[in-house]
């Protein structure tokens, strides 16, 4: 069951590459592997926490105000996370500080709350939060790896190929779109081939 769930989060329902959720933060932070990893784990934390809480209180939330309620809960966890990062990992704060508030408007988190947590029990919601967060992290690592390598000839701040002239465009937003589009294209092609 765990293997099946992992496969669902990372491959068959990958939030970025298949469901196309949370593209904004993905584009903003996938300029280097370090940023991508930090953002992925931060999002996973918020997603898992908000999924559990929303799943627990789903019965008491009136249909009409459910979205504001979800947003308040998500924003609370983001604020808490931001304080914790500031207090315990100042290095991460200086690198990711301005991107952390972006998690509030990460539609992957609201999307999972609406589509999954509000319909399932807390344990399943927690698992969903973890596997989806993991899928988000894996996708960010793929995108940021490609972008950091092509855009600055580095991986984890270390040089890769001697004499390779990096293409700065890949660090910038247009490059981000290209990379996401190409990775999605490859995945779609592979799936179609498998289906046919």
């Amino acid at each position: 069951m765990i293997a099946k769930e992992l496969k669902r989060g990372i491959i068959t329902e990958n939030p970025i590459l298949i469901l196309a959720l949370g593209l904004c933060p993905a584009l903003a932070v996938s300029t280097s592997v370090k940023n991508g990893l930090g953002m992925g784990l931060a999002s996973m934390f918020v997603l898992a926490c908000s999924n559990v809480i929303i799943s627990i209180i789903k019965a008491w939330i009136p249909e009409k105000v459910r979205i504001p309620c979800y947003i308040v809960i998500i924003a609370t966890f983001v604020s808490i996370l931001q304080l914790l990062i500031k207090a315990y990992t100042p290095a991460l704060d200086s690198q990711l500080g301005i991107f952390i508030p972006l998690i509030v408007v990460n539609c992957m988190i609201l999307g999972r709350a609406e589509a999954y947590a509000s319909k399932n029990n807390p344990v399943h919601a927690l698992i969903d939060g973890f596997v989806m967060g993991l899928g988000f992290t894996v996708a960010l690592l793929i995108l940021s790896g490609i972008r950091e390598f092509l855009g600055s000839n580095k991986l984890l701040d270390l040089l890769v190929i001697p004499g390779f002239q990096p293409m700065t465009a890949f660090i910038l937003a247009p490059g981000g779109f290209f990379v996401i589009a190409l990775v999605m294209g490859v995945i779609n092609y592979a799936q179609r081939k498998k289906g046919a």
Partner: peptide
């Protein structure tokens, strides 16, 4: 990131 943020860049010559 990747442009102006390089004010803090340490141009390490180390390879991966």
């Amino acid at each position: 990131p990747g442009l102006g943020s390089r004010v803090n860049e340490i141009a390490s010559a180390k390879y991966i």
